[in-house]
Design a protein around this nucleic acid. Structure first.
Lengths: 121, 121
DNA sequence: CTCCTAATCAACCGAAAGGTTGAGTACCGA
DNA sequence: TCGGTACTCAACCTTTCGGTTGATTAGGAG
């Protein structure tokens, strides 16, 4: 994957197994085998999932003898949260303004999705 | 796509073009042709993107003559935000507890990511 | 009715995702 | 040194994704 950071994070969390792994890691660090245990997929598949999460910056892997404990990097969530909040706020602001406009013309339409007006272009 | 709601939302926003469309819609409703204009892809491709966003519950399409104005449903962001906040909080809480433990044993290790302890299982 | 515009549907294509099996690497323990 | 354990790498397979072109539906405008 050579996508932008935001796409990598969103895409990493678009898979339920990977979200599950993140949920598990929020409790505490774990090894690949520990993470793979609950699922009926091979440990290689989980290893691939971890690579995706790592590329997205959501987890890091250290080294402890032959074990490679996986650690959740929760701060990367900020990237998403900021993006989401930005457009949510913007959309809500817009809704509020539209509401004001409708309130300021009390004699106009009262059926919101009615496409009956002849608004010329 | 027959995935769970959360996967649909994350996956919908994993594409930069679709995030761009969401950003555009936060400013105001738009038609498919208007949305397609800035990109050098066909209008059919954009229509597909909108279908993905609609299936994720992020936008809705009404009908106004032969036009189908697209509207941003900002409230669906909540689903993501809740999921993210949950595990961020959990991870931060864990970090805080670990910090407390380390503080309560002042003679122990002082190199945070040092995997030198022989914690027996 | 006929034409134009807006948008979707359908079939297809190449690339990437998610899975598998099999081999390879790295480290510990006897 | 020889296994055994923990994990990754590589090749392959099938499904999904993002895009295309071409046909079709739906609704004004003349």
């Amino acid at each position: 994957m050579v996508a932008d950071p935001l796409s990598r994070v969103f895409s990493a969390l678009a898979d339920p197994t990977r979200r599950d792994i993140v949920a598990r890691l929020a409790v505490g660090d774990a090894t690949v085998n520990e993470l793979a245990a609950p699922y009926d997929v091979t440990v290689q598949a989980v290893s691939k999932h971890l690579k995706v999460l790592e590329d997205a910056g959501l987890v890091s892997r250290s080294r402890e003898a032959q074990r490679r404990p996986v650690h959740l990097e929760a701060n990367v969530f900020d990237l998403m949260t900021k993006w989401i909040e930005r457009y949510r706020r913007q959309a809500e602001e817009r809704y509020r303004r539209l509401d004001d406009v409708l309130r300021s013309m009390p004699d106009a339409v009262d059926t919101p999705p009615s496409p009956q007006e002849g608004t010329p272009s």
